[in-house]
Computed example of a mutant assay.
Amino acid sequence: MAKLLFHLGNVPDEEAEEVRRLLDEHAIATYETRAGFWGLGVAAIWLRDENQREQARSLIDTYQQTLGERMRDEQARLAAQGEAPTLWRRLKRRPLRTLLLALLAAAVLAVSLLPFLWLLD
């Protein structure tokens, strides 16, 4: 019976492709499902042979640990060069978008709190 191995929801295409390649290189038998047009399905990589679960899980865990270290190093490098994304840099780069998102957040907060404020009267 197939076992869920790796969720693909919110996974960048590059990472998903690297995981697929890693599993193929080690001859891990898998198949993939998509979430579908409405997003009601499960986008994932499934393991065909449960006997390969330990090996596949180990490969993916090692890959994700390496990826995390690589991303932390990249973030540290950007911070050292003064290029790391910060709120101020995003505001300077896209002031209108940042303002609209802040207004949207304020509107959602107001709509969420208004019923409770009316109870105080």
Rank of each mutant, 00 (worst) to 15 (best):
R89S: 10
E69R: 12
T33D: 11
A79N: 08
A84F: 10
A35L: 12
R97I: 14
V19R: 03
L78N: 07
L96H: 09
L119E: 00
A106Y: 00
W46V: 15
E74Q: 08
T33M: 11
A110K: 00
Q81M: 12
L59W: 02
T66N: 14
Q65P: 00
H26Y: 01
D24N: 05
L47I: 13
D24V: 07
I28Y: 01
R20K: 10
K3V: 11
F116H: 07
E18W: 04
R72P: 03
L120H: 00
Q52K: 05
E17S: 07
T98I: 06
R21Y: 04
V11E: 05
D61S: 12
L113K: 01
T30G: 04
T98Q: 06
A110W: 11
L113G: 01
W118R: 02
K92Y: 08
G68N: 13
R94K: 14
L5G: 02
L8T: 06
I28G: 02
L5Y: 03
L59G: 02
G82T: 08
Q64V: 12
A107V: 13
P85L: 13
Q75Y: 09
L99I: 07
L8K: 04
R70A: 14
L22H: 03
G68V: 03
F37Q: 15
N10G: 08
R53D: 09
F116A: 09
R94S: 08
L4E: 14
Q65R: 13
D49S: 12
G82A: 05
D24T: 05
R53P: 01
L67I: 04
N10M: 11
P12L: 09
G9Y: 06
A106N: 05
A43P: 14
R70E: 15
P95L: 09
R93T: 11
